Computed example of a mutant assay.
Amino acid sequence: MTATYTVNCSILYTDLPLLDRPAAARDAGFTAVEFWWPFESAIPSDRQVSAFVTAVGDAGVQLSGLNFAAGDMPSGDRGILSNPGSTLIFRDNVDIAVGIADALGTTMFNALYGNRIDGLPAQLQDDTAIENLAFAASAADRIGASVLVEPVSGAPRYPITTAARAVDVIDRVGAPNLRLLADLYHLFVNGDDVNAAITTYSSYIGHIQIADAPGRGEPGTGQIELGEHLGRLLAGGYHGYVGLEYKATRRDPFSWLPRAQRGADAIGPGSPQVPAKRGSL
């Protein structure tokens, strides 16, 4: 069983300029990176887009995944697709993201749902999200890509908190290229049954991300049995990337994973390469 890791360069390497991060991941031995939306604006200039595409291409790494614009994340936004007032911006952003992905061979987009908006009926927000997800799925399908729906923790007004809730949304849209992003950290923190989610929704899972809890640090710094969970996913047929989406808590945030195994790593339940709990490093 093998896992190929991708470094989330929006939460790691934050001490470096954004365009320097793909090369830093390459220098650390990785062959793929992923990003949240990498621009301040949902509609960046052609020059900004070109610089980003060039930085990834020059680093020689695969851009495995890209988030659609999600609003002002540092201020608490977690997506715009459920906001009726942001539909035009979201759809323009989808077109730009698909262009970036087409240039770089990217096949996964993450569409954060959006926080609940006070004063607007929840049904209106959900209907807007469904329509926008259908639009995004259709646009992604033109380049053979998938769109992910992610349960998120730490955002009290974000309505998608469990794998079951995300799958409900996916089923309502009905697009075959709409998949579940199973971030094992978010599921664990939200109190979801991670083992049950893996077993029940394995056919929906399009991408995996990991961090440990509490703290959202490196594997082995908390209490999540990441080795066991990943081993079960791989044994069940998951062949996609495993996104390293955690906060660095030590000088080398990848010390838990031998350099020679960072591109493709042999892994099984309880593997020391993905420590099961604090103290196993």
Results as ranks from 00 to 15, higher is better:
residue 241 Y to F: 15
residue 60 G to M: 08
residue 247 K to T: 11
residue 11 I to S: 08
residue 209 Q to S: 07
residue 202 S to K: 14
residue 201 Y to E: 05
residue 54 T to L: 11
residue 203 S to G: 15
residue 92 D to I: 03
residue 212 D to R: 01
residue 31 T to G: 05
residue 111 A to G: 10
residue 114 G to E: 03
residue 182 A to L: 14
residue 96 I to F: 01
residue 252 D to T: 08
residue 244 L to E: 11
residue 254 F to E: 00
residue 11 I to M: 12
residue 107 T to E: 11
residue 127 D to N: 11
residue 9 C to E: 12
residue 51 A to T: 10
residue 256 W to E: 04
residue 248 A to D: 00
residue 124 L to K: 06
residue 123 Q to M: 15
residue 213 A to D: 07
residue 147 V to R: 09
residue 47 R to V: 12
residue 132 N to W: 15
residue 185 Y to T: 10
residue 214 P to V: 00
residue 24 A to D: 02
residue 100 I to W: 02
residue 196 A to H: 11
residue 103 A to T: 07
residue 53 V to C: 09
residue 81 L to S: 01
residue 155 A to L: 13
residue 193 D to Y: 06
residue 211 A to H: 05
residue 238 Y to K: 13
residue 51 A to G: 06
residue 244 L to F: 06
residue 274 V to P: 09
residue 181 L to A: 11
residue 194 V to T: 06
residue 155 A to N: 10
residue 89 I to G: 05
residue 180 L to H: 04
residue 44 P to Q: 06
residue 49 V to C: 07
residue 80 I to Y: 05
residue 240 G to V: 09
residue 187 L to M: 10
residue 258 P to Y: 04
residue 185 Y to S: 13
residue 118 D to R: 08
residue 17 P to N: 03
residue 213 A to L: 01
residue 281 L to W: 10
residue 240 G to A: 11
residue 247 K to C: 09
residue 253 P to Q: 00
residue 38 P to A: 03
residue 152 V to F: 06
residue 98 V to H: 02
residue 113 Y to W: 15
residue 134 A to V: 13
residue 266 A to K: 04
residue 235 A to I: 12
residue 21 R to D: 00
residue 24 A to C: 03
residue 235 A to T: 15
